[in-house]
Design a protein around this nucleic acid. Structure first.
Length: 304
DNA sequence: TAGATACCTTATAG
DNA sequence: ACTATAAGGTATC
C-alpha cells in the first residue's frame, strides 16, 4: 500500500475535501461509511474511495484505487500504486490557485456569500466518458440519486480491484457499458436515460465519437461537439466541459442558476440558452465563471 | 427558430 | 393512503 499526506495549507486557497466531493460535480467517489451527502463525521476524517482506470500514458492495465481523507488540515491518502499524489492533483484540481481564481470572480452579494460558505471547494477533473454518462443521468434527478446510478453502473459493469481486503469497482469502460442493453439499464432505475446511456456508450465504443474530441476546441465549438451524443444537450455539455475537460468558463444553466439569474441577475436573461449563457459567464468574470457557478449552485441548493 | 409536450423513477409535501 | 409536484433536461414535433 502506498500512503502519503500533505497539509492543505500548502495549497493556494486551501482545500475542503468533503465540499469538493459532495457538491454534485463528481459522482465517481464513494464515502467509506456509505453516508454520502449526509452529515459528515463531526470529528472529520471521513474517507472516500475512487477507482481510476489506467490512462493511455500508464504502463499497467490495472485500475488504480485511491483512498483519501482530510484530518486536521492534512490531506492523507492511500493507494494501490505509487505516485498517487499526481493522480489526486489531477482529479481534484489541487494545482489550481484558488485564491487567484476566486479573486477573479465578482464581489456581488450572492457570490460573496457562496464563496464564504464553501471555502476550499475546488472543481474536479473527472474522466470524460464517466463524466458524460454521469450528467446524462443527471436529467431531472437529485444529486444523491445521480450518485446511486453511477454506483449501480460500476457495480454491474465495472472492473474490480482488491484493496485492503475489500473489493472496489471502477466506472465501466465504454465497451462494457455498450454491451449493456436498454432494459438492463432500466433495471438499474435509469428510467428514460437508459437508451441515452446505451447509445452514447455505443458511439464511444464504436469509435464514432469520443468526448475527448472536444478538448482543444473553442468553448462554444466544444459544447456543440458534445451535443452529438444522445441525451446531451447544452446544459449537460456544459457540465462535462466544466467538470471534466477544464473549460472553467462554462456555466451550466441548470434550475438553480436559472433561479439565480431570475432573482439576482435579471438583465442576464436573454431568452435563449446561448445568449443567456454568454451574459452570465460575463457577469461571473469570464475565464473562471464556472467556479463562481459551482459556489452559487451549492449556496442556493443548500440555502435557497 | 421558438414553443409545447412526453418521458422514467423516486422523494416529499399537502 | 393518495395525488401533485419537482428533481442540476433532452428529444421530438
Amino acid at each position: 500500500m502506498n500512503v502519503g499526506s500533505r497539509p492543505v495549507g500548502a495549497l493556494d486557497g486551501g482545500f475542503d475535501l468533503q465540499a469538493t466531493l459532495e457538491c454534485g460535480q463528481s459522482y465517481l467517489w464513494r464515502r467509506a461509511d456509505g453516508r454520502m451527502y449526509e452529515e459528515p463525521n463531526a470529528a472529520g476524517g471521513d474517507a472516500w474511495y475512487h477507482v481510476a482506470l489506467p490512462s493511455t500514458a500508464t504502463e499497467t492495465n490495472e485500475p488504480e484505487l485511491l483512498r483519501v481523507r482530510q484530518v486536521d488540515g492534512v490531506l492523507e491518502w492511500a493507494a494501490s500504486t505509487p505516485n498517487a499524489y499526481a493522480r489526486l492533483e489531477e482529479l481534484l484540481r489541487l494545482d489550481d490557485d484558488l485564491d487567484a481564481i476566486l479573486a477573479a470572480t465578482p464581489d456581488d452579494p450572492l457570490v460573496e456569500r457562496a464563496r464564504d460558505a464553501y471555502c476550499g471547494l475546488r472543481l474536479v477533473r473527472d474522466p470524460p466518458f464517466a463524466s458524460l454518462v454521469s450528467f446524462i443521468c443527471s436529467a431531472q434527478m437529485r444529486v444523491a440519486r445521480i450518485h446511486e446510478m453511477q454506483v449501480s453502473l460500476a457495480e454491474r459493469y465495472g472492473e474490480t480491484i482488491e484493496f485492503d481486503g475489500e473489493t472496489h469497482r471502477a466506472f465501466p469502460t465504454p465497451d462494457r457499458l455498450a454491451a449493456a442493453d436498454e432494459s438492463a439499464l432500466r433495471d438499474l432505475s435509469l428510467g428514460y436515460r437508459a437508451p441515452y446511456v446505451e447509445r452514447t456508450a455505443e458511439m464511444v465504443a464504436d469509435g464514432e465519437a469520443h468526448p475527448e474530441e472536444a478538448r482543444g476546441l473553442d468553448y462554444e465549438a466544444a459544447r456543440e461537439s458534445l451535443t452529438r451524443f444522445v441525451g446531451v444537450g447544452r446544459k449537460v455539455a456544459d457540465c462535462v466541459l466544466l467538470f471534466s475537460l477544464g473549460y472553467l468558463q462554462a456555466v451550466p444553466l441548470d434550475t438553480w442558476i436559472r433561479t439565480a439569474i431570475e432573482e439576482h441577475y435579471p438583465d442576464c436573461e436573454r431568452g435563449s440558452y446561448g445568449e443567456t449563457s454568454r451574459a452570465i459567464r460575463e457577469r461571473f468574470g469570464g475565464e473562471y465563471a464556472g467556479y463562481a457557478q459551482t459556489y452559487v449552485f451549492n449556496w442556493l441548493r443548500n440555502n435557497g
